[in-house]
């Protein structure tokens, strides 16, 4: 009986998220890593941003470059509209992520060959474009046609997966601020991505990070660019509405 009572109490507390205002993973970094992220000369993710800048100005098959339309330094791109991704695309009848938007421009406006989702060139271009919008507040509209994608991303976020049989919400909603081994659990937001990971010494896309969290749970990950991960991106970005874009973030 006692155990049932305890279980009941735990269930009630589980229904309430541990946070009501989104806080960036940045706030959970040791000061040294925060300084590394803030200082563009020290931030190793800036190498990827610069590589993206070079690609941005490189002419494609038809002689045009991204810069031909968007300005030499991307100055004609509007940070506010970058912060709205993923957006609804009538042609796709679904979400268009920022990376898909970039890929679409390459193919349609530069006459280039298509690249696979999370191709290093696309991650670099995405990092460059998101860096242009650094500080802009994430603002994804899921009140309209993206709603079903938001809902299915949310369902995936709450589904137990893998041998460890936990869901994203266990770590990033319920036990936020508590420690898993030596790691303080953060809210699991997407605003820092693409982010440079110190442990791997490489840039990680958002979908790459999803694959890592699936691996932690000993679950079979979905493919990068899959409908499931795109739905998760819609949900996570909207869940973090109001957070400043930080790309390239520094994370462990």
């Amino acid at each position: 009986m006692k155990a049932v009572l305890i279980a009941a109490l735990l269930c009630i507390s589980a229904a309430v998220a541990a946070w009501d205002k989104p806080v960036s993973g940045y706030a959970y970094l040791p000061e040294q890593m925060q300084r590394m992220q803030d200082d563009e000369f020290a931030n190793p993710g800036m190498e990827t941003v610069e590589a993206g800048g070079t690609l941005f100005r490189t002419r494609g098959y038809n002689g045009k470059s991204c810069a031909s339309c968007h300005g030499e330094d991307g100055g004609k791109l509007e940070p506010k509209s970058i912060a709205r991704y993923p957006v609804y695309s009538a042609a796709h009848r679904g979400p268009l992520t920022l990376q898909q938007r970039i890929s679409q421009c390459r193919e349609q406006r530069l006459d280039e060959f298509p690249l696979a989702y999370d191709d290093p060139q696309l991650i670099a271009l995405e990092a460059y474009v998101r860096h242009l919008a650094r500080g802009e507040k994430v603002n994804v509209d899921v009140s309209g046609p993206l709603r079903p994608w938001y809902e299915s991303g949310k369902a995936l976020y709450h589904r137990r997966i893998g041998q460890l049989d936990m869901s994203c919400q266990h770590c990033h909603d319920r036990y936020v601020d508590l420690k898993l081994r030596d790691q303080v659990l953060n809210q699991g937001h997407s605003n820092g991505f693409p982010a440079y990971r110190l442990l791997s010494g490489a840039i990680s896309s958002l979908h790459g990070k999803f694959r890592d969290c699936f691996a932690t749970l000993r679950a079979m990950p979905y493919a990068v660019g899959s409908d499931e991960f795109i739905a998760l991106e819609v949900y996570l970005n909207a869940r973090g509405n109001g957070l400043a874009i930080e790309a390239p973030g520094i994370r462990r």
Binding site: I6, A7, R159, Q163, M166, H170, A219
Partner: peptide
């Protein structure tokens, strides 16, 4: 506690969803 985060260390693996 059906809501617990704690993994089941010895249950029927058929219960897992998308195990690796």
């Amino acid at each position: 506690n059906p809501e617990t985060i704690m993994p089941a260390f010895y249950c029927d693996p058929a219960r897992y969803n998308r195990p690796h």
